[in-house]
Simulated scan of single mutants.
Amino acid sequence: MSEPVVYDRAPAELDLEPGEYWWCACGRSMTQPFCDGSHEGTEFEPVPFVIEEKSTVWLCNCKHSKDKPFCDGSHNDLPDDIF
């Protein structure tokens, strides 16, 4: 299994309206942290998630969270040379 592209160490802090969203798991999207279809031809698939009410969320940008799409602090355990 290949590794995703690390977009950023810091999570994306976003105020999201209710709705369905697609989080980029491959790290290649030009609309980070959301999917733009750049995963085509890779083994990665976007992660769908639903926001029920307007919320502030922290979405993972390092692509290594165990709680995808949300940041779980995994970026703190990655080596500095990956960024």
Rank of each mutant, 00 (worst) to 15 (best):
E13R: 14
M30E: 08
E43V: 12
D15F: 07
C24I: 04
F49T: 00
S74V: 08
L14C: 07
D81N: 14
D36W: 04
S55N: 10
P11Y: 03
E17G: 06
R28H: 14
Y21W: 07
D15Q: 11
E43T: 14
D8P: 02
F49L: 07
D72E: 03
L59G: 02
H75S: 14
S65D: 00
A10T: 13
S55H: 08
C62T: 09
P33G: 10
T56P: 07
F70I: 03
D36G: 03
K68H: 01
D81A: 10
P46C: 02
C24L: 07
G37N: 12
D8S: 12
S55Q: 12
Y21I: 03
E17C: 09
A12I: 04
L59N: 01
P4S: 09
V57D: 03
A12G: 07
L78R: 07
V5P: 05
T42M: 06
P48W: 00
T42F: 04
Q32M: 12
S55L: 10
I51Y: 01
T42Y: 03
L16R: 01
E20H: 02
Q32D: 06
S65M: 00
P11D: 08
E40M: 13
V57C: 05
D77S: 13
N76R: 15
M1E: 15
C26E: 09
E52D: 12
M1P: 15
A25D: 10
A12F: 07
P4M: 11
P11E: 06
P33K: 09
E43S: 12
F83C: 13
